[in-house]
Design a protein around this nucleic acid. Structure first.
Length: 623
DNA sequence: AAAAAAG
């Protein structure tokens, strides 16, 4: 008797850790495993892949999530005392010392045929989508934007790698942010999801590290560990991994050493790589602090600090950790280092916090902040909780039927880790090839899930907000907010997993009375991106204003507390203005006043020239 | 009330 494939699928992917750890296979030798015959749903069957998350085999079992499950201490490190594993009599066997980061074809989408031609010579980036987008910059002496990569004084090898990445011209955020960063200025930058922010902060950092001289600073300080000259912080481990992979491409053969540090993976291995020297460290906060406390990393040499998803890094959960790293370790003070903050969203209150870390910074806003210029079609459907699963199944079936051999990865966001697991199970029971990712899974399962999803073997990913920010997953054509998030910013980041690099995407939200607090923000955002707002949704927005207004009066057009979508330098508000911040030197491009339905804010008199044409989002409400 | 991030 044959097992339904959903069962064998469950068995084979559920507990990868139980299996014998596979032999390490160098990246360039890894082959995608062919799928077998075709199955009911029309997808190739998922097969267990021997591609585990960690690039080298390790003894001692997989590291477990923080104190939860105990056994593995994740390798050597601590048990042998300080410095254990630091001094190798012989270097560890390392057959591929500098693997070509561009050689990762086997990890790319290999199960479903890509029918769209992305070989347009722009690295798959659709630049038409970026025509006429509004740009605002404020601050003193703003360096002008560039039109090409070559006119920036990037190093030769960096230009080579840009070619290898098939980038032919900078995206708008890159055009504006790179010159600012190259000029040594601090920067707070807002740009749409999927518009190339990673490169925008990596290029100047790599270039700066090269100009300062690689290895000029000792790889290791006397006894405080390695002293990287750049630090890039990320709110999730997977995003840290992704930034690291990207940065390695940009820095390939440049001599710049880039390392990554995040939790859930054996620290010993990360330390080993770190000890070979590190110019740029990509990290999540917890693991970084751990390494600093072990005196294996020192921040004393930091010249560049970048916070990706900066508003997330400075929200309630993260702010103390970040403050500790930036203000209470041996990091040079602001002004003595260069600080770059990037996100798609930048609420006022977070901007205020962030200003602590910056010195005479430039605020840059590129693109209609929040969503991606209407590239993402947004739908909102009224679905009661008890109907959600059936409705989801209907959507997924339609998609499977209607996909003419087209790529269709679907990302389903839920509220809790538990519901992610249970929805994954339910989908599997109904023969939908789904896998869940959330913070209660061990790191290897998390990375496995992401990998199976990315390559199309498991084309449905059920996720918590662990996957809502920054992850660049090509071919995600549909984001479903099975449970809507609490804040509109989170919604913006979630739907931003589709419609990347100028491609289009679809976002569907299941809305019911419980999401009423989000109604107003949702409507404003949808109107901003020229989406059709269902009339029933307006009714939910009506009675909402009292509960969520932050007090202090003021109409809905009042500036303060507004602009949850970023895009607005809070220093413009006189009530926050201090010292001699932004001068008259500022520029604004584009005129997005057309199509805007929200009224402009009231205190236009306080707006410097060149501002305000497109800034119409006035949330006025829920903060 | 939830997710994330060290062990």
């Amino acid at each position: 008797m044959t097992m339904p494939w959903s069962d064998s699928f469950t068995e084979s992917t559920r507990n990868p850790t139980r299996r014998t750890l596979p032999k390490y296979i160098p990246r360039h030798l890894r082959n995608s495993e062919g799928g077998g015959g075709s199955y009911g749903y029309g997808y190739a069957p998922p097969t267990e892949s021997p591609q585990y998350g960690f690039r080298q085999s390790y003894a001692g079992g997989p590291g477990r999530q923080a104190g939860r499950n105990g056994p593995g201490r994740g390798g050597g490190g601590r048990g042998r005392g300080r410095g254990g594993g630091r001094f190798w009599a012989q270097p560890p066997p390392n057959p591929t010392p500098d693997p070509n980061p561009f050689d990762n074809v086997s990890e790319e989408f290999d199960q479903l045929k890509v029918t769209e031609d992305e070989g347009d010579g722009n690295g798959g980036i659709n630049f038409d989508a970026y025509e006429d987008i509004p740009v605002d910059a404020s601050g003193e002496d703003i360096p002008p934007p560039v039109d090409t990569f070559v006119e920036i004084d990037l190093a030769e090898c960096l230009n080579e790698n840009i070619k290898r990445c098939k980038y032919v011209k900078p995206t708008p955020i890159q055009r504006h942010a790179i010159p600012i960063a190259m000029a040594g200025r601090d920067l707070m930058a807002c740009a749409q999801t999927g518009s190339g922010k990673t490169a925008a902060f990596c290029f100047p950092i790599i270039s700066g590290v090269l100009n300062n001289g690689v290895g000029l600073s000792p790889a290791r300080g006397v006894d405080r560990g390695v002293c990287p000259s750049a630090l890039i912080l990320s709110p999730t481990r997977e995003l840290a991994g992704q930034i690291h992979e990207e940065a390695k491409k940009f820095g390939y053969q440049s001599g710049v050493k880039i390392a990554v540090a995040y939790g859930g993976a054996p620290i010993s291995q990360q330390l080993r790589i770190l000890d070979r020297g590190c110019d740029i460290l990509v990290a999540t906060p917890g693991r970084l602090v751990d390494m600093i406390e072990r005196s294996r990393v020192s921040l004393s040499n930091i010249k560049y600090l970048a916070l990706d998803e900066a508003d997330r890094m400075l929200d309630m959960g993260f702010e103390p950790q970040i403050r500790r790293i930036v203000e209470q370790m041996d990091m040079p003070r602001s002004g003595a280092r260069q600080t770059l903050l990037f996100s798609a969203t930048f609420p006022d209150e977070i901007q205020r916090l962030a200003a602590d870390f910056l010195s005479n910074y430039i605020f840059l806003s590129v693109g209609r902040v929040g969503s991606s210029t209407g590239l993402i079609a947004q739908r909102v459907e009224l679905v009661e909780d008890m109907d959600k699963r059936n409705h989801l199944m209907k959507l997924l079936s339609q998609q499977a039927n209607g996909a003419h051999g087209k790529v269709a990865l679907t990302l389903v966001f839920v509220e809790t880790k538990r519901s992610a697991d249970s929805l994954e199970n339910w989908l599997r029971m109904n023969r939908f090839p789904a896998i869940a990712i959330h913070g209660d899974k061990v790191q290897m399962e998390r990375e496995q899930a992401l990998r199976l999803f990315k390559c199309g073997k498991t084309p449905i990913l059920v996720a918590t907000d662990v996957a809502s920010r920054g992850l660049d997953i090509p071919h995600v054509s549909h984001v479903i907010n099975f449970d809507l998030p609490k804040s509109i910013d989170d919604y913006v980041h979630r739907i931003g997993r589709t419609g990347r690099a100028g491609n289009s995407g679809l976002a569907t939200a299941f809305f019911n009375a419980k999401n009423q607090p989000l109604a107003k923000g949702l409507i404003e955002l949808m109107q901003e991106s020229n989406q059709e707002v269902p009339s029933w949704l307006n009714e939910y927005a009506e009675g909402e204003s009292q509960t969520y207004s932050s007090g202090g009066g003021g109409g809905r057009n009042r500036r303060s507390g507004g602009s949850k979508f970023g895009g607005y330098d809070y220093r413009r508000d006189s009530q926050y203005a201090h010292d001699s911040y932004y001068g008259p030197s500022s520029y604004g491009y584009g005129d997005y006043s057309g199509g805007m339905s929200a009224a402009p804010y009231n205190d236009a008199a306080s707006v410097p020239n060149g501002y305000g044409n497109y800034e119409t989002i006035v949330a006025g409400g829920w903060d």
